[in-house]
Amino acid sequence: MQRVNMIMAESPGLITICLLGYLLSAECTVFLDHENANKILNRPKRYNSGKLEEFVQGNLERECMEEKCSFEEAREVFENTERTTEFWKQYVDGDQCESNPCLNGGSCKDDINSYECWCPFGFEGKNCELDVTCNIKNGRCEQFCKNSADNKVVCSCTEGYRLAENQKSCEPAVPFPCGRVSVSQTSKLTRAETVFPDVDYVNSTEAETILDNITQSTQSFNDFTRVVGGEDAKPGQFPWQVVLNGKVDAFCGGSIVNEKWIVTAAHCVETGVKITVVAGEHNIEETEHTEQKRNVIRIIPHHNYNAAINKYNHDIALLELDEPLVLNSYVTPICIADKEYTNIFLKFGSGYVSGWGRVFHKGRSALVLQYLRVPLVDRATCLRSTKFTIYNNMFCAGFHEGGRDSCQGDSGGPHVTEVEGTSFLTGIISWGEECAMKGKYGIYTKVSRYVNWIKEKTKLT
């Protein structure tokens, strides 16, 4: 034993070699072989497995989906700052455009905790909710729209109204504003409101030439003092309507412009014939205590009207009353817009006519005020429907199939267009061939041609 100890002390290297040989010859039971080890760690190889990531292109799944990435790591994937920024906006807080917040056709661009709407022409605001041009839906104005110097929408209202708090709607500024039905039992019968379409306001006024200088022999019209197929109006439903009495009662109609003036057809009036105007009328054979009678003290036909040349060209006249009318729910003026808007309103496509005229061709006159909704007829169809001249200051309205029309005794009465609950004068009943005849239409004086003249002559002093 002493000898062994001496050998170990003198030859430590020998001992180490012996131990190493023993270990190498022993069977290893701690580690699995290569094949079995792979069965336990069965993990798919990654895209760049075996390579240094710093030297390969980034992978979106590896960089940002398996674990949260930084902007720089995302930049490695896209290799483009702009594309990385677009991805980053949604990656950080989701897609803010998912709810489609942009209105009126706006395009949404996502941002971090926010979004941006790219608005089409005519709109602005956070969600493109603000109209900035009158060309689109009248700028959301209830009545009139004008573009300011910086191309912003400025709404306005006709006389007797003021802008509401929203700067879009119009509200009454006087007790009985024009064009409004205020009798409670008839307010439910107000005709369907007309909503502004998209309009090209630059070209809204037709490029028409008034044929002022045409000389033409007097034409022989049949029954051209021209509501057939209409309905009984309720008291106060058309408070701007008046009836004219002269040699015979209810020979023509008219509309209240203001307390002192009536507008009617020029062919209705004769110099030297006494005319009485009755406002607030409903049943011409009954006294309903809503009527107001006034005498006409002055007749002003349009300066281009000449019955000797043509009885229905420039067929418009103004009547001055001896005493002002007292405005109330049964006696209310009709609204008159400017030339541009009167023309736009007419193009809405349908209007209402009213009167006490004959209820059928050569038949009896109506006792109760009649009204009828009539569609506008395109000019080409209008011209083809008659052998008589249709001037540019006239328009056609009615039904091709016949059966409904204005008729004798309705002449001078109103053709009105309702705009968001307020009625505007767009025409004056003038003439036609018979009444409600198939293929024939009622012919009306186009008020847009005469609004400046009306307003100039009827100013209240």
Rank of each mutant, 00 (worst) to 15 (best):
N5L: 12
S11K: 15
G13F: 07
L14Y: 04
I15D: 01
C18Q: 02
L24C: 05
S25D: 03
A26I: 06
E27W: 02
L32E: 11
H34T: 13
N36S: 09
K39W: 04
K39Y: 07
I40E: 15
L41S: 13
L41E: 14
K45T: 04
N48G: 04
S49L: 11
V56E: 11
V56Y: 08
Q57L: 09
N59T: 06
E67S: 04
C69W: 03
E72S: 10
E73R: 08
V77T: 11
T84S: 09
W88Q: 15
Q96I: 14
C97L: 02
C97Q: 02
S99Q: 15
L103T: 08
D110A: 08
S114I: 06
Y115N: 12
E116H: 06
C117M: 01
W118G: 03
F121T: 15
F123G: 11
E124R: 04
E129I: 04
N135L: 10
Q143E: 01
Q143H: 11
F144M: 04
C145V: 02
C145E: 04
N147M: 10
S148T: 12
N151Y: 06
N151T: 08
C155I: 01
C155Y: 00
Y161L: 02
R162F: 08
L163F: 01
A164R: 07
A164M: 09
N166T: 03
S169E: 06
G179I: 01
R180Y: 05
R180P: 02
R191S: 11
V195W: 12
F196E: 10
D200F: 12
V202N: 12
V202P: 12
N203S: 07
S204H: 08
I214G: 04
T215V: 09
S217T: 09
T218K: 05
T218Q: 09
F221P: 12
D223N: 06
R226Q: 04
V228E: 08
G229W: 07
G229S: 12
D232V: 06
P235L: 13
G236Y: 03
G236M: 08
G236Q: 05
L244M: 06
N245A: 09
N245F: 04
A250F: 06
S255Q: 02
S255M: 04
V257D: 00
K260F: 07
W261H: 01
I262Y: 01
H267M: 02
C268S: 00
V273S: 11
I275W: 09
I275Q: 02
T276S: 05
E281K: 12
I284M: 05
E286S: 10
E286C: 09
E286I: 07
E286A: 08
T290Y: 12
K293D: 02
R294L: 00
R294A: 02
I297K: 13
A307T: 08
K311C: 04
N313L: 10
I316K: 01
A317F: 02
E320P: 00
L321A: 00
P333N: 05
P333M: 02
I334M: 00
I336T: 02
F345W: 11
Y352S: 14
V353R: 15
G355E: 11
F360G: 12
H361E: 09
Y371L: 13
R373H: 14
V374D: 01
V377Y: 03
D378I: 03
D378N: 12
A380F: 12
C382A: 02
L383I: 13
T389M: 04
M394E: 02
F395I: 02
C396N: 02
F399S: 03
H400Y: 12
H400F: 11
H400W: 07
G409A: 14
G413L: 15
G413Q: 12
E418H: 12
E418C: 07
V419W: 07
F424T: 01
G427M: 00
I429Y: 14
W431E: 13
G432K: 13
M437F: 06
Y441G: 02
Y441H: 10
K446R: 07
V451R: 03
V451M: 03
N452W: 04
W453D: 00
W453V: 01
W453T: 00
E456L: 06
K457I: 09
K457V: 14
K459A: 06
K459E: 12
L460W: 14
